[in-house]
Design a protein around this nucleic acid. Sequence first.
DNA 1: GTGGATGCAAAGAATTTGCAACCAA
DNA 2: TTGGTTGCAAATTCTTTGCATCCAC
Lengths: 145, 145
Amino acid sequence: MKTTVPKKLFQKAEKLIKDKSLSVTEPRKNILAFLLKNHGPFSMEEIHDGLGKNACDLATVYRCIVLFENSNLVERRYLGDEILRYEYKDMDHHHHHIVCRICKSVSKMKYCFISEIEQMIRDKGYSDITHSLEFFGVCAKCNQK
Amino acid sequence: MKTTVPKKLFQKAEKLIKDKSLSVTEPRKNILAFLLKNHGPFSMEEIHDGLGKNACDLATVYRCIVLFENSNLVERRYLGDEILRYEYKDMDHHHHHIVCRICKSVSKMKYCFISEIEQMIRDKGYSDITHSLEFFGVCAKCNQK
DNA sequence: GTGGATGCAAAGAATTTGCAACCAA
DNA sequence: TTGGTTGCAAATTCTTTGCATCCAC
């Protein structure tokens, strides 16, 4: 997953970080640019490896991801195993995933009609509602084998 | 959460375990009976503590829960923090949760109309489909403060 | 009686933290 | 210049495993 990241994405990453009033450092730029370039979600280790081996310490990845999460730049995903994964939180492209139980391939699903349920929950007095929705199954490829 | 478990639930637990052709041991009965009695979901440690301190080793809880999960007696839940939790998988009462971001209270939601999406995924060639759906928000109580 | 289950302790992973050096603002 | 950030290593926490003993069948 180690790939070259276009300059444009570095600039976008830098802007996103600045807009959250966080200081812009190399590791932060690298990590966010990596997540902008690649569709996730990725584990901490995958992100660390994806940056190329000497980009920054694994501990720094942990620290940056937590920071990004708190700043709403990154979203945590749970895909059925025991590993937490992270991806860039694109406000304009809310989506969910389908995970193959066999090969673990992840595919995106834009479709989501959860708003009715959220309204119901709002009626119960909850505010600030979000949700997490993931599907699991055995994909067509794995079914052929 | 340490509570006395009615004899009836022990019998039910025993039957459930037997029906999966697993051997019936004290720890297994205790753990499953605990999950039958209490609405979860619970972490490994909560289950262990809930049994009363000398019921069985924490390692045994891990082993039993994994076993129950594979036997479809127990369901793993991810509620937004980094802790995995488990609850009895009642085939007749499929449900989801609403978690308060502040006080972490968990409330049940029976409502679920995901079947249309599952059909869509089936059409893509996936089989054996399940999903996970959890909601997060700030509950009425916490909003008052 | 025998194979699987358990307790215990130790190993292994995953994650967090303290601290000195470094860097962005 | 200075407070926040990083790398490194150690500490902590979480989970798994090996093995002798025990128990369900």
